[in-house]
Design a binder for these strands. Structure first.
Lengths: 239, 239
DNA sequence: CGGAAAAAGCTGCCATACAGGTTTTTCTTC
DNA sequence: GAAGAAAAACCTGTATGGCAGCTTTTTCCG
């Protein structure tokens, strides 16, 4: 039974792994939240009877997964939810050819048709403002692809945020790094101004649907957006 | 504009971060795939003009995100896609009360109604066998909750696999650690044998729908499964 | 009492050392 | 010459000690 996507059963009795476990356990048992400070490396070193080297590697690993924040001279603190690590995992999957760009679009479509719908139901006035601002900024800067891309990414993240479920934000964010690399391909496959503006127009209408509070339209527009994007990528010869 | 879920703009000019970047760049530019070997710590240390300590912490971080595999005495190798790190991130979010269990169920419902549908369309004979075996094993072992849970988890992962999109597997797997902790709560909230068997029955029917190749039924059954699960959790007083 | 300066504490990084696992090379024997 | 065993070379895991530079706490002066 080859599992393709697996999780190592890490009994991994290495000191570092155990130390990571102890630290996360510490967070859990002490009910620490974002911003709360962890013991110093030296303290943990004594407490767990391992060298500071081991504690440092454990901290470093936790920081890589963005579970804690590290800053020189300061104590480590519990981190806020952050999609940085997940974004690296996805990017790694694409670069090692274990994930295709099209598979990512399939997942994004599934997720984001839902966030669009929820956003239309739950958005606050502020969020509507942000979403619309990004959509309009895409149109205004449409001769500067860099800018368009940044606003596009922010647009999708803002919708996820308006859906009021941080897990959706996490997942949408997880695709950010890859999107930065594939976005220009999609853009170039829409060579005329008309085609580019048409793509941007969908974003604007989507912003309006969310503003109006029309979940069905929001959903449909997001679906259309992804259908068009996939079409564009296929036209550009992306497998 | 408070972002709630963020990604640190890691210009993070720390040596370790830079080294992590260099290593992932090495993987990318040399087009390394799973199993391929990376340079030794000493070699990278010389090549990048940093101490072995720094290289080690970078390796350790990459291993934490499951981008590479480390084993004593052996060279580091590029890892296969693995949801271990993502699962820790989600678990962290729940323990620090940045994510609620119900929010996870919302996302799982969105994702897994899709995987069920796709599985019905794309499954192989082997996968059907695996999926059904897990569903039946749930019924057979239904007096041993531990066993039921394990087969339940494997059931959902196998469906994701049958959907033939590793990103779905990654996401479904990302909820594994949390599920292991919340599953018993849902189970206990179905106190009678009849209720427990009813829940298991949905799994069996779902397996059948996937076997038959009926995407609509598969989808509906998965949706019902999650609706029931949420109801059970709410009954148990989970916010 | 307020604020500046000194002290203490902490992290980032480095060099070195050695135990124990793994790979490669060498040597022996058939 | 080939197969297999022994040795050498290489590699990672962990520990220790040290120092620069940043932060927090304490102390002391006005």
């Amino acid at each position: 039974m080859s599992t393709v996507v697996a999780a190592k059963h890490s009994d991994a009795a290495s000191l570092v792994s155990n130390t990571i476990g102890e630290i996360t356990r510490h967070i859990r048992t002490h009910e620490l939240g974002p911003g709360d400070r962890l013991p110093s490396e030296a303290a943990l070193s004594r407490q767990l009877s391992v060298s500071r080297t081991v504690v440092r590697e454990a901290f470093s690993s936790l920081a890589a997964m963005r579970l804690i924040d590290l800053r020189a001279g300061r104590r480590a603190t519990v981190a806020e939810l952050d999609y940085g690590a997940m974004s690296l995992v996805i990017e790694h999957g694409v670069h090692t050819e274990q994930i295709t760009v099209q598979q990512i679009y399939d997942v994004r479509r599934t997720i984001e048709t839902r966030t669009a719908m929820l956003a239309a139901l739950r958005r606050t006035a502020d969020e509507v403002e942000g979403i619309r601002a990004h959509a309009l900024a895409m149109r205004e800067n449409f001769q500067r692809p860099e800018q368009v891309m940044e606003h596009d990414l922010a647009f999708h993240l803002e919708i996820a945020k308006a859906a009021k479920n941080p897990v959706f934000s996490l997942i949408v964010g997880a695709f950010e790094r890859v999107s930065r690399q594939t976005w220009p391909i999609g853009w170039r496959s829409r060579p005329s101004d008309a085609e580019q503006l048409e793509m941007i127009q969908i974003h604007i209408e989507l912003a309006e649907a969310i503003e109006t509070g029309d979940p069905q339209s929001a959903r449909d527009l997001m679906a259309r957006h992804f259908d068009e994007s996939v079409k564009a990528l296929l036209a550009a010869g992306i497998a």
